[in-house]
Write a protein that binds this DNA or RNA. Structure first.
Lengths: 203, 203
DNA sequence: CGGTTTTACCCCCCAAAGGGGGGTTTTAAT
DNA sequence: ATTAAAACCCCCCTTTGGGGGGTAAAACCG
Protein backbone atom coordinates (compact mmCIF):
# COMPACT_ATOMS: atom_id res chain seq x y z
CA UNK A 1 0.00 0.00 0.00
CA UNK A 2 1.34 3.40 -0.97
CA UNK A 3 1.60 5.89 1.88
CA UNK A 4 0.80 9.51 1.10
CA UNK A 5 1.21 12.76 3.00
CA UNK A 6 -0.60 15.95 2.02
CA UNK A 7 0.48 19.57 2.49
CA UNK A 8 -2.07 22.19 1.52
CA UNK A 9 -3.44 25.15 3.40
CA UNK A 10 -6.96 24.64 2.05
CA UNK A 11 -8.49 22.47 4.72
CA UNK A 12 -11.55 21.62 2.72
CA UNK A 13 -9.41 20.42 -0.15
CA UNK A 14 -7.22 18.25 2.03
CA UNK A 15 -10.31 16.61 3.46
CA UNK A 16 -11.64 15.97 -0.01
CA UNK A 17 -8.31 14.56 -1.12
CA UNK A 18 -8.01 12.41 1.95
CA UNK A 19 -11.35 10.71 1.52
CA UNK A 20 -10.73 10.37 -2.21
CA UNK A 21 -7.44 8.57 -1.60
CA UNK A 22 -8.65 6.41 1.27
CA UNK A 23 -11.77 5.34 -0.61
CA UNK A 24 -9.82 4.37 -3.70
CA UNK A 25 -7.84 1.67 -1.92
CA UNK A 26 -4.65 2.42 -3.85
CA UNK A 27 -3.04 4.40 -1.06
CA UNK A 28 -3.42 5.50 2.53
CA UNK A 29 -2.93 8.97 3.96
CA UNK A 30 -0.31 8.98 6.71
CA UNK A 31 -0.26 12.67 7.41
CA UNK A 32 -1.75 16.05 6.61
CA UNK A 33 -0.19 19.46 7.15
CA UNK A 34 -1.53 22.91 6.40
CA UNK A 35 1.74 24.76 6.09
CA UNK A 36 5.35 24.15 5.16
CA UNK A 37 6.35 24.61 8.80
CA UNK A 38 3.87 21.95 9.98
CA UNK A 39 5.06 19.60 7.30
CA UNK A 40 8.71 20.15 8.14
CA UNK A 41 8.07 19.02 11.70
CA UNK A 42 6.27 15.82 10.87
CA UNK A 43 7.64 14.62 7.58
CA UNK A 44 10.49 12.58 9.02
CA UNK A 45 7.98 10.89 11.25
CA UNK A 46 5.43 10.12 8.55
CA UNK A 47 7.99 8.86 6.01
CA UNK A 48 5.48 8.79 3.16
CA UNK A 49 6.17 7.28 -0.24
CA UNK A 50 4.52 10.25 -1.90
CA UNK A 51 4.15 13.85 -0.79
CA UNK A 52 1.25 15.75 -2.32
CA UNK A 53 2.60 19.28 -2.22
CA UNK A 54 0.61 22.44 -2.85
CA UNK A 55 2.78 24.93 -4.70
CA UNK A 56 0.93 27.91 -3.24
CA UNK A 57 1.71 27.42 0.43
CA UNK A 58 1.36 30.55 2.57
CA UNK A 59 4.70 30.30 4.33
CA UNK A 60 7.07 29.01 1.68
CA UNK A 61 7.50 28.98 -2.07
CA UNK A 62 6.64 25.59 -3.52
CA UNK A 63 9.91 25.46 -5.41
CA UNK A 64 12.06 26.10 -2.35
CA UNK A 65 10.13 23.69 -0.19
CA UNK A 66 10.34 20.96 -2.79
CA UNK A 67 14.10 21.40 -3.00
CA UNK A 68 14.31 21.26 0.78
CA UNK A 69 12.25 18.08 1.04
CA UNK A 70 14.22 16.30 -1.68
CA UNK A 71 17.51 17.31 -0.06
CA UNK A 72 16.47 15.90 3.29
CA UNK A 73 14.39 12.93 2.10
CA UNK A 74 15.48 11.95 -1.41
CA UNK A 75 13.37 8.81 -1.23
CA UNK A 76 10.10 10.76 -0.98
CA UNK A 77 8.48 11.34 -4.35
CA UNK A 78 6.95 14.78 -4.59
CA UNK A 79 3.73 15.22 -6.54
CA UNK A 80 3.07 18.92 -6.97
CA UNK A 81 -0.46 20.23 -6.81
CA UNK A 82 -1.42 23.69 -7.95
CA UNK A 83 -4.22 25.97 -9.01
CA UNK A 84 -2.47 27.52 -11.96
CA UNK A 85 -0.66 26.04 -14.90
CA UNK A 86 2.32 28.26 -15.48
CA UNK A 87 5.13 26.85 -17.55
CA UNK A 88 7.88 28.45 -15.50
CA UNK A 89 6.59 27.07 -12.22
CA UNK A 90 6.18 23.54 -13.57
CA UNK A 91 9.63 23.64 -15.05
CA UNK A 92 11.18 24.92 -11.83
CA UNK A 93 9.39 22.30 -9.74
CA UNK A 94 10.59 19.47 -11.95
CA UNK A 95 14.12 20.88 -11.95
CA UNK A 96 13.99 20.88 -8.17
CA UNK A 97 13.08 17.27 -7.75
CA UNK A 98 9.32 17.03 -8.16
CA UNK A 99 8.24 13.77 -9.78
CA UNK A 100 4.87 14.93 -11.01
CA UNK A 101 2.51 17.80 -11.42
CA UNK A 102 -1.26 18.05 -11.09
CA UNK A 103 -3.59 21.01 -11.50
CA UNK A 104 -6.23 21.19 -8.82
CA UNK A 105 -9.12 20.96 -11.22
CA UNK A 106 -7.84 17.61 -12.45
CA UNK A 107 -10.18 14.67 -12.35
CA UNK A 108 -10.11 12.42 -9.33
CA UNK A 109 -8.72 9.56 -11.37
CA UNK A 110 -5.77 11.66 -12.44
CA UNK A 111 -4.89 12.25 -8.83
CA UNK A 112 -4.86 8.51 -8.17
CA UNK A 113 -2.99 7.74 -11.36
CA UNK A 114 -0.44 10.38 -10.42
CA UNK A 115 0.09 8.94 -6.96
CA UNK A 116 0.53 5.44 -8.35
CA UNK A 117 2.94 6.53 -11.08
CA UNK A 118 5.04 8.70 -8.81
CA UNK A 119 5.22 6.01 -6.12
CA UNK A 120 6.55 3.64 -8.77
CA UNK A 121 9.37 6.07 -9.46
CA UNK A 122 7.92 7.35 -12.69
CA UNK A 123 7.20 10.96 -13.52
CA UNK A 124 3.62 12.02 -14.01
CA UNK A 125 2.04 15.09 -15.52
CA UNK A 126 -1.71 15.55 -15.64
CA UNK A 127 -3.20 15.97 -19.08
CA UNK A 128 -3.39 19.75 -19.01
CA UNK A 129 0.22 20.18 -17.88
CA UNK A 130 1.45 17.57 -20.31
CA UNK A 131 -0.01 19.58 -23.17
CA UNK A 132 1.46 22.77 -21.78
CA UNK A 133 4.95 21.31 -21.63
CA UNK A 134 4.90 19.60 -25.00
CA UNK A 135 3.13 22.04 -27.26
CA UNK A 136 5.30 24.82 -28.59
CA UNK A 137 3.72 28.06 -27.50
CA UNK A 138 4.58 31.66 -26.80
CA UNK A 139 3.86 30.99 -23.12
CA UNK A 140 6.96 28.81 -22.85
CA UNK A 141 9.32 31.50 -21.68
CA UNK A 142 12.51 30.50 -19.94
CA UNK A 143 14.75 33.07 -18.29
CA UNK A 144 18.25 32.65 -16.91
CA UNK A 145 18.57 33.04 -13.12
CA UNK A 146 20.20 36.40 -13.65
CA UNK A 147 17.36 37.57 -15.85
CA UNK A 148 14.82 36.46 -13.26
CA UNK A 149 16.71 38.44 -10.65
CA UNK A 150 16.69 41.54 -12.81
CA UNK A 151 13.01 41.09 -13.52
CA UNK A 152 12.32 40.88 -9.81
CA UNK A 153 14.25 44.08 -9.11
CA UNK A 154 12.51 45.88 -11.95
CA UNK A 155 9.15 44.81 -10.55
CA UNK A 156 10.11 46.21 -7.18
CA UNK A 157 10.35 49.56 -8.90
CA UNK A 158 14.10 50.06 -8.78
CA UNK A 159 15.59 52.24 -11.49
CA UNK A 160 18.52 51.09 -13.59
CA UNK A 161 20.84 53.12 -11.42
CA UNK A 162 19.52 51.66 -8.19
CA UNK A 163 19.74 48.13 -9.51
CA UNK A 164 23.29 48.74 -10.72
CA UNK A 165 24.24 49.93 -7.25
CA UNK A 166 22.64 46.98 -5.55
CA UNK A 167 24.19 44.23 -7.61
CA UNK A 168 27.44 46.02 -8.47
CA UNK A 169 27.06 46.27 -12.22
CA UNK A 170 27.15 49.16 -14.66
CA UNK A 171 23.83 50.97 -15.20
CA UNK A 172 24.37 50.41 -18.91
CA UNK A 173 24.46 46.68 -18.30
CA UNK A 174 21.16 46.85 -16.45
CA UNK A 175 19.77 48.75 -19.38
CA UNK A 176 20.94 45.95 -21.62
CA UNK A 177 19.17 43.34 -19.49
CA UNK A 178 16.05 45.42 -19.48
CA UNK A 179 16.03 45.68 -23.26
CA UNK A 180 16.60 41.98 -23.53
CA UNK A 181 13.77 41.16 -21.17
CA UNK A 182 11.39 43.37 -23.14
CA UNK A 183 12.47 41.58 -26.29
CA UNK A 184 12.28 38.07 -24.82
CA UNK A 185 8.84 38.52 -23.33
CA UNK A 186 7.59 40.63 -26.19
CA UNK A 187 6.62 43.40 -23.79
CA UNK A 188 6.07 46.93 -24.96
CA UNK A 189 7.32 48.61 -21.80
CA UNK A 190 7.95 48.15 -18.10
CA UNK A 191 4.26 48.07 -17.24
CA UNK A 192 3.62 45.09 -19.50
CA UNK A 193 6.86 43.47 -18.40
CA UNK A 194 5.81 43.54 -14.76
CA UNK A 195 2.33 42.35 -15.65
CA UNK A 196 3.69 39.37 -17.56
CA UNK A 197 6.19 38.60 -14.82
CA UNK A 198 3.43 38.37 -12.26
CA UNK A 199 0.83 36.67 -14.43
CA UNK A 200 3.21 34.02 -15.65
CA UNK A 201 4.82 33.74 -12.25
CA UNK A 202 8.28 34.32 -13.65
CA UNK A 203 9.51 35.83 -10.40
CA UNK B 1 -33.43 21.89 5.14
CA UNK B 2 -31.25 24.46 3.37
CA UNK B 3 -30.52 23.66 -0.26
CA UNK B 4 -27.08 24.56 -1.57
CA UNK B 5 -25.53 24.66 -5.02
CA UNK B 6 -21.78 24.79 -5.58
CA UNK B 7 -19.82 26.37 -8.46
CA UNK B 8 -16.09 25.77 -8.42
CA UNK B 9 -13.74 24.48 -11.06
CA UNK B 10 -11.69 22.49 -8.54
CA UNK B 11 -13.40 19.15 -8.66
CA UNK B 12 -11.63 17.79 -5.61
CA UNK B 13 -12.72 20.75 -3.59
CA UNK B 14 -16.35 20.48 -4.66
CA UNK B 15 -16.37 16.85 -3.61
CA UNK B 16 -14.88 17.75 -0.27
CA UNK B 17 -17.42 20.50 0.21
CA UNK B 18 -20.26 18.28 -0.84
CA UNK B 19 -19.53 15.55 1.66
CA UNK B 20 -18.83 18.14 4.33
CA UNK B 21 -22.23 19.72 3.81
CA UNK B 22 -24.18 16.49 3.44
CA UNK B 23 -22.58 14.95 6.54
CA UNK B 24 -23.33 18.00 8.67
CA UNK B 25 -27.06 17.65 8.31
CA UNK B 26 -27.65 21.41 8.12
CA UNK B 27 -28.01 21.51 4.35
CA UNK B 28 -28.23 19.40 1.23
CA UNK B 29 -26.39 19.89 -2.04
CA UNK B 30 -28.81 20.23 -4.94
CA UNK B 31 -26.30 20.89 -7.67
CA UNK B 32 -22.64 21.24 -8.57
CA UNK B 33 -21.16 23.07 -11.54
CA UNK B 34 -17.54 23.48 -12.59
CA UNK B 35 -17.88 26.65 -14.61
CA UNK B 36 -20.02 29.75 -14.85
CA UNK B 37 -21.52 28.46 -18.10
CA UNK B 38 -22.55 25.14 -16.51
CA UNK B 39 -24.04 26.95 -13.59
CA UNK B 40 -25.98 29.36 -15.78
CA UNK B 41 -27.70 26.43 -17.48
CA UNK B 42 -28.79 24.67 -14.33
CA UNK B 43 -29.31 27.31 -11.71
CA UNK B 44 -32.96 28.00 -12.54
CA UNK B 45 -33.61 24.31 -12.28
CA UNK B 46 -31.84 23.77 -8.96
CA UNK B 47 -33.32 26.86 -7.29
CA UNK B 48 -30.97 26.63 -4.28
CA UNK B 49 -31.31 28.75 -1.16
CA UNK B 50 -27.59 29.34 -1.15
CA UNK B 51 -25.05 29.43 -3.96
CA UNK B 52 -21.46 28.72 -2.98
CA UNK B 53 -19.60 30.68 -5.62
CA UNK B 54 -15.90 30.47 -6.34
CA UNK B 55 -14.59 33.91 -7.26
CA UNK B 56 -11.83 32.50 -9.45
CA UNK B 57 -13.89 30.77 -12.09
CA UNK B 58 -12.09 30.10 -15.36
CA UNK B 59 -14.74 31.50 -17.67
CA UNK B 60 -16.12 34.51 -15.81
CA UNK B 61 -15.11 37.04 -13.22
CA UNK B 62 -16.68 36.29 -9.87
CA UNK B 63 -17.96 39.84 -9.55
CA UNK B 64 -19.74 39.80 -12.90
CA UNK B 65 -21.23 36.39 -12.36
CA UNK B 66 -22.50 37.32 -8.92
CA UNK B 67 -24.21 40.39 -10.35
CA UNK B 68 -25.74 38.26 -13.08
CA UNK B 69 -27.07 35.65 -10.65
CA UNK B 70 -28.56 38.23 -8.31
CA UNK B 71 -30.19 40.03 -11.23
CA UNK B 72 -31.86 36.86 -12.45
CA UNK B 73 -32.50 35.16 -9.10
CA UNK B 74 -32.62 37.79 -6.35
CA UNK B 75 -33.85 35.20 -3.87
CA UNK B 76 -30.66 33.15 -4.07
CA UNK B 77 -28.13 34.10 -1.40
CA UNK B 78 -24.61 34.07 -2.74
CA UNK B 79 -21.80 32.94 -0.47
CA UNK B 80 -18.50 33.75 -2.12
CA UNK B 81 -15.58 31.38 -1.79
CA UNK B 82 -12.07 32.35 -2.66
CA UNK B 83 -8.40 31.52 -2.27
CA UNK B 84 -7.18 35.03 -1.65
CA UNK B 85 -8.31 37.71 0.74
CA UNK B 86 -8.09 40.93 -1.22
CA UNK B 87 -10.02 43.86 0.15
CA UNK B 88 -11.07 45.16 -3.24
CA UNK B 89 -12.53 41.84 -4.37
CA UNK B 90 -14.48 41.32 -1.16
CA UNK B 91 -15.83 44.83 -1.35
CA UNK B 92 -16.84 44.46 -4.99
CA UNK B 93 -18.55 41.12 -4.35
CA UNK B 94 -20.57 42.52 -1.47
CA UNK B 95 -21.49 45.58 -3.54
CA UNK B 96 -22.72 43.23 -6.24
CA UNK B 97 -25.08 41.26 -4.09
CA UNK B 98 -23.02 38.61 -2.33
CA UNK B 99 -24.30 37.83 1.16
CA UNK B 100 -21.14 36.36 2.55
CA UNK B 101 -17.51 35.65 1.98
CA UNK B 102 -15.30 32.69 2.91
CA UNK B 103 -11.63 32.06 2.27
CA UNK B 104 -10.92 28.53 1.13
CA UNK B 105 -8.64 27.73 4.00
CA UNK B 106 -11.44 28.44 6.44
CA UNK B 107 -12.39 25.79 8.93
CA UNK B 108 -15.18 23.40 8.06
CA UNK B 109 -17.41 24.84 10.77
CA UNK B 110 -17.10 28.30 9.25
CA UNK B 111 -18.42 26.96 5.96
CA UNK B 112 -21.48 25.53 7.69
CA UNK B 113 -21.97 28.63 9.83
CA UNK B 114 -21.75 30.73 6.67
CA UNK B 115 -24.34 28.66 4.84
CA UNK B 116 -26.74 28.81 7.78
CA UNK B 117 -26.31 32.56 8.26
CA UNK B 118 -26.66 33.40 4.59
CA UNK B 119 -29.71 31.17 4.18
CA UNK B 120 -31.31 33.06 7.05
CA UNK B 121 -30.85 36.29 5.13
CA UNK B 122 -27.95 37.50 7.22
CA UNK B 123 -24.54 38.48 5.91
CA UNK B 124 -21.57 36.38 6.88
CA UNK B 125 -17.85 36.96 6.72
CA UNK B 126 -15.37 34.36 7.84
CA UNK B 127 -13.03 35.39 10.60
CA UNK B 128 -10.11 36.29 8.37
CA UNK B 129 -12.19 38.45 6.04
CA UNK B 130 -14.01 40.07 8.94
CA UNK B 131 -10.68 41.24 10.32
CA UNK B 132 -9.59 42.43 6.90
CA UNK B 133 -12.71 44.54 6.45
CA UNK B 134 -12.82 46.01 9.93
CA UNK B 135 -9.23 46.73 10.77
CA UNK B 136 -7.89 49.96 9.31
CA UNK B 137 -4.92 49.05 7.19
CA UNK B 138 -2.88 50.31 4.26
CA UNK B 139 -4.24 47.42 2.23
CA UNK B 140 -7.72 48.95 2.26
CA UNK B 141 -7.40 50.84 -0.97
CA UNK B 142 -10.53 51.93 -2.77
CA UNK B 143 -10.39 53.43 -6.23
CA UNK B 144 -13.12 55.13 -8.20
CA UNK B 145 -14.31 53.24 -11.30
CA UNK B 146 -12.51 55.79 -13.46
CA UNK B 147 -9.29 55.26 -11.57
CA UNK B 148 -9.61 51.50 -11.93
CA UNK B 149 -10.10 51.93 -15.66
CA UNK B 150 -6.99 54.08 -15.92
CA UNK B 151 -5.04 51.60 -13.85
CA UNK B 152 -6.10 48.82 -16.20
CA UNK B 153 -5.02 50.77 -19.27
CA UNK B 154 -1.69 51.65 -17.67
CA UNK B 155 -1.14 47.97 -16.87
CA UNK B 156 -1.79 47.12 -20.50
CA UNK B 157 1.23 49.25 -21.32
CA UNK B 158 -0.54 52.16 -22.97
CA UNK B 159 1.20 55.53 -22.81
CA UNK B 160 -0.58 58.65 -21.62
CA UNK B 161 -1.10 59.70 -25.22
CA UNK B 162 -2.57 56.36 -26.24
CA UNK B 163 -4.91 56.30 -23.27
CA UNK B 164 -6.00 59.86 -24.00
CA UNK B 165 -6.84 58.86 -27.56
CA UNK B 166 -8.76 55.81 -26.48
CA UNK B 167 -11.00 57.44 -23.90
CA UNK B 168 -11.14 60.88 -25.49
CA UNK B 169 -9.41 62.89 -22.81
CA UNK B 170 -6.45 65.20 -22.75
CA UNK B 171 -3.06 63.53 -22.23
CA UNK B 172 -2.57 66.00 -19.40
CA UNK B 173 -5.60 64.61 -17.63
CA UNK B 174 -4.23 61.10 -17.93
CA UNK B 175 -1.02 62.38 -16.47
CA UNK B 176 -3.01 63.74 -13.57
CA UNK B 177 -4.68 60.40 -12.94
CA UNK B 178 -1.37 58.68 -13.12
CA UNK B 179 0.14 60.99 -10.54
CA UNK B 180 -2.88 60.51 -8.32
CA UNK B 181 -2.71 56.73 -8.57
CA UNK B 182 0.96 56.73 -7.66
CA UNK B 183 0.11 58.91 -4.67
CA UNK B 184 -2.94 56.91 -3.57
CA UNK B 185 -1.24 53.55 -3.74
CA UNK B 186 2.07 54.89 -2.52
CA UNK B 187 3.83 53.49 -5.56
CA UNK B 188 7.22 54.75 -6.59
CA UNK B 189 6.68 54.32 -10.31
CA UNK B 190 4.68 52.46 -12.95
CA UNK B 191 6.36 49.14 -12.24
CA UNK B 192 5.25 49.16 -8.59
CA UNK B 193 1.86 50.49 -9.59
CA UNK B 194 1.23 47.55 -11.90
CA UNK B 195 2.56 45.12 -9.33
CA UNK B 196 0.23 46.44 -6.66
CA UNK B 197 -2.70 46.49 -9.07
CA UNK B 198 -2.24 42.80 -9.83
CA UNK B 199 -1.31 41.65 -6.35
CA UNK B 200 -4.20 43.43 -4.72
CA UNK B 201 -6.51 42.58 -7.60
CA UNK B 202 -7.49 46.17 -8.12
CA UNK B 203 -8.16 45.61 -11.79
C1' DC C 1 37.65 20.90 -29.04
C1' DG C 2 34.16 24.19 -30.96
C1' DG C 3 29.66 26.08 -30.62
C1' DT C 4 26.04 28.11 -27.80
C1' DT C 5 24.39 30.66 -23.94
C1' DT C 6 24.96 33.63 -20.31
C1' DT C 7 26.83 37.41 -18.40
C1' DA C 8 28.70 41.91 -18.59
C1' DC C 9 29.80 46.10 -20.84
C1' DC C 10 29.56 50.65 -23.98
C1' DC C 11 27.73 54.51 -27.30
C1' DC C 12 23.95 57.84 -29.16
C1' DC C 13 19.26 59.89 -29.30
C1' DC C 14 14.62 61.03 -28.23
C1' DA C 15 10.09 59.93 -26.29
C1' DA C 16 7.81 59.10 -22.01
C1' DA C 17 7.40 59.28 -17.16
C1' DG C 18 7.33 61.72 -13.06
C1' DG C 19 7.54 65.77 -9.77
C1' DG C 20 6.12 70.41 -8.95
C1' DG C 21 3.04 74.00 -9.53
C1' DG C 22 -1.62 76.13 -11.11
C1' DG C 23 -6.59 75.76 -12.25
C1' DT C 24 -12.34 74.72 -13.54
C1' DT C 25 -16.56 71.99 -13.65
C1' DT C 26 -19.62 68.37 -12.55
C1' DT C 27 -21.77 65.28 -9.34
C1' DA C 28 -23.19 63.36 -5.13
C1' DA C 29 -23.89 63.68 -0.51
C1' DT C 30 -25.05 66.34 3.86
C1' DA D 1 -26.92 75.59 0.15
C1' DT D 2 -22.37 74.00 1.07
C1' DT D 3 -18.96 70.84 0.88
C1' DA D 4 -16.26 67.10 -0.78
C1' DA D 5 -14.79 64.31 -4.21
C1' DA D 6 -14.26 63.07 -8.59
C1' DA D 7 -13.18 64.40 -13.25
C1' DC D 8 -11.03 67.40 -16.15
C1' DC D 9 -7.23 70.66 -18.12
C1' DC D 10 -2.49 73.27 -18.60
C1' DC D 11 2.52 74.90 -17.69
C1' DC D 12 7.59 73.86 -16.54
C1' DC D 13 11.48 70.94 -15.87
C1' DT D 14 14.40 66.69 -14.84
C1' DT D 15 15.00 61.84 -14.78
C1' DT D 16 14.13 57.45 -16.71
C1' DG D 17 12.99 54.37 -20.24
C1' DG D 18 13.42 52.45 -24.57
C1' DG D 19 15.21 51.77 -29.60
C1' DG D 20 19.22 51.44 -32.24
C1' DG D 21 23.71 50.08 -32.73
C1' DG D 22 27.85 47.44 -30.89
C1' DT D 23 32.15 44.16 -28.06
C1' DA D 24 33.88 40.37 -25.38
C1' DA D 25 34.97 37.24 -21.51
C1' DA D 26 33.27 33.31 -19.08
C1' DA D 27 30.51 29.11 -18.55
C1' DC D 28 28.20 25.11 -20.37
C1' DC D 29 27.76 21.12 -23.04
C1' DG D 30 28.13 17.62 -26.56
Amino acid sequence: MISVAIVDDHKILTEGLQSLIEDSGVAKVVGVAHSAADCRLSLGFWKPDVLLLDVGLPDSSGVDFCKEVKAQFPEINVLALTTHNEYTIVRQMLDNGASGYLVKNAMADEVLAGIAAVAAGKTFLCHEIDLLMKRPSPKKIWLSPRERELLRLISEGLTNGEIAEQIFLSPETIKGYRKNLLLKLGAKNTAVLVKMALEQKLI
